[in-house]
Nucleic acid binder design. Structure first.
Lengths: 194, 194
DNA sequence: GCGAGACGTTGATTTTTATCAACGTTTTTT
DNA sequence: AAAAAACGTTGATAAAAATCAACGTCTCGC
């Protein structure tokens, strides 16, 4: 279970991982299995754990007054599921996170993560890189949201995360793009004709 | 010039700043004045400097094939202007950053920033906090973009960053919201009637 | 002081997208 | 195996927002 985490850290950081570091990692990250549709986090809860996804898929979303879900993030293998705001400030979350597939995850608390980062230099790099990647991706997503049409946004998603389109049903993709499932269906119909 | 930076770091970090740290800060951050409309970064350039804004206002935006500007960020005092993707990976930027007002800024390169962070513990916290805040704000902006109408997005902006509305003209605000200036004008007209 | 450009408004029209409703297919549950 | 739920599609219609065009005001540089 921990192997894929270790491999992933190695791939993201130049600093090697000592074998005592690996032992420490294994002690700190708690393996946990989630069933499809199981919540990892519900609105109003404080996000105590961060989850590294070893296998499976999750979604992070808000629910508005009308009861409609708005998907903020789709998460698959090697991604990190949490609500950093809630976790760091220890305030109730605005988001739901649940599993779209049966999922194997590795959990840590904020504190154990801090301790780990202090002790293992490679993790510092890893953390920085994740934060960096997130920053870049957000900026792009915001730019797409304010400057592209529904159709263009869909084609951008096809280019950027083709695996999402394979893995999640269309109404989930539509929500992620901020459009209705009907509009997405029409966009795809158009695209298929060409 | 450096005072506002020092004060800001203090306000964001629990660790105190030693006086030798302050000397180091002053040596590392290069003060520079920019005129209104002056570019800080142009598309295609590598972003060599990050700029801490002491006084003034900037905007970060893309320009599409039609020549239209799409504003990704508005930046004022105590904010940090750069393109992290370009700066860290040393690749050409997709963004323009220019000054909307005459601006006093403090510049650092990536390397001098890394060195500083290594030497001054308070900066580490500061960096983490900025990155955190950015993360939270992005998530909210994405959520607003995919779930709210133009009108609701405008009212959210009024709540979240009222200073932007004072400081930037309407067509800039409209671009930031991803709507046309005409639509924003009508939204404001509606709101005024109530 | 005057002309150019920036800014904002308003109206008419078109385009884009959402909404509502119905229906077929597939998957899951019982 | 049947029923229910989830998923996707299509059509008609409505709402939201963009586009196009014209115009008024203000500011700034010369």
């Amino acid at each position: 279970m921990h192997e894929s985490l270790i491999q992933y850290i190695r791939s993201q950081s130049a600093t090697p991982l000592a074998s005592k570091d690996i032992d420490l990692l294994k002690k700190t990250f708690i393996p946990k299995k989630f069933r499809k549709r199981q919540y990892f986090l519900q609105e109003g809860e404080v996000c105590v754990y961060g989850a590294f996804i070893v296998k499976g898929a999750m979604r992070k979303y808000t629910v508005d007054e009308k009861g409609e879900e708005h998907i903020v993030e789709l998460l698959i293998e090697n991604w990190w599921a949490n609500d950093r705001e809630s976790q760091i400030k220890e305030v109730p979350s605005r988001y739901f996170i649940d599993c779209w597939e049966d999922t194997d995850a590795l959990l840590t608390t904020k504190q154990s993560m801090y301790d780990l980062i202090d002790r293992i230099p490679a993790l510092k790099e890893w953390r920085a890189k994740i934060s960096e990647n997130y920053h870049i991706a957000s900026q792009k997503r915001i730019n797409d949201a304010i400057s592209l049409s529904a159709e263009q946004r869909y084609h951008e998603l096809e280019k950027t995360y083709p695996e999402f389109i394979q893995r999640f049903p269309q109404h989930i993709i539509a929500s992620y793009l901020g459009i209705t499932k009907e509009t997405l269906s029409r966009i795809r119909h158009q695209a298929a004709k060409k």
